[in-house]
Design a protein around this nucleic acid. Sequence first.
DNA 1: AATTTAGCTTTCAAATTGCAAGTAAAAACA
DNA 2: TGTTTTTACTTGCAATTTGAAAGCTAAATT
Lengths: 147, 147
Amino acid sequence: MPQDFRCDCPFTSALDILGDKWMLVIVKQMLVEGKETFKDFTESDEAIATNILSTKLKLLEEVGIIIKTKRPGNKKTNLYLLTDMGLALTPILAELATWSDSYLRGMHPGIADGEAMEAMRDDKAAFASALEQSYRAKLASIVYEQQ
Amino acid sequence: MPQDFRCDCPFTSALDILGDKWMLVIVKQMLVEGKETFKDFTESDEAIATNILSTKLKLLEEVGIIIKTKRPGNKKTNLYLLTDMGLALTPILAELATWSDSYLRGMHPGIADGEAMEAMRDDKAAFASALEQSYRAKLASIVYEQQ
DNA sequence: AATTTAGCTTTCAAATTGCAAGTAAAAACA
DNA sequence: TGTTTTTACTTGCAATTTGAAAGCTAAATT
């Protein structure tokens, strides 16, 4: 199923891929919460249904935002990892979270407000690149089958 | 219909509102293309259906991203304008477009690549604040019913 | 007064999302 | 070595969202 695009607008084209309830949430779970396996994702706060998870992981892989691999010696557990294309979504996530912080608390007072949020308020770009860097460090440290 | 949120995550909460095919596209049409009226939106490249447009405009207003008003003396044509909350989405849009520029051209070679794209590549933050500023200038110049 | 325009609403079809249950293969356990 | 558990799904079906097309009403224009 090749992606199709509504028009030639770069804003809209990003949303043709990312504009749904789940794509960026899954990327966030990988980047921020360190989720890597199918089971990890099913145990998230957002409680994604397994059929949708399966569909979205396939789409993310097809588009090139993640790769699907395994740890050597383990034939069962799939590892899902962000590519450069996926890591490049970090600034979008940081912008979404700071927008929530600024404008959604009136509507949803429970929104988390810990150290990470403070760090983001303090310096959004620094927060984003620290997140990205820490994910890259993890990638460098874990062993998985290259393709 | 009060919005409901999947969990307390600030990333996810933004997507509970913005995570669909249309919300950010409509904001983009207002901000970048200067669209203001129901008819303006129906004439866009993205070709939104009128029933969906109607639903999404209501939701955008309810959330506080836009206001619905009129020009004095005109009882027919509604004017939809971005609020501060809506204008604060500008950086998200800029990030989405630059991500498309960097990673989607392989999949979608037709993505527009004009002066605006060059300006964004050159300085994303400057581009975003120029866009925002120009929208604010327009707001200051047009006459509409205050509420 | 008649026509056009703007801003919808309604109907119904199609696609997407979601719940719950089931399956298959690998791994862990006894 | 057999049994159980775990992981990663798939399947069936209901509910919600999206979409195409037509219709409708009031305001504005001719």
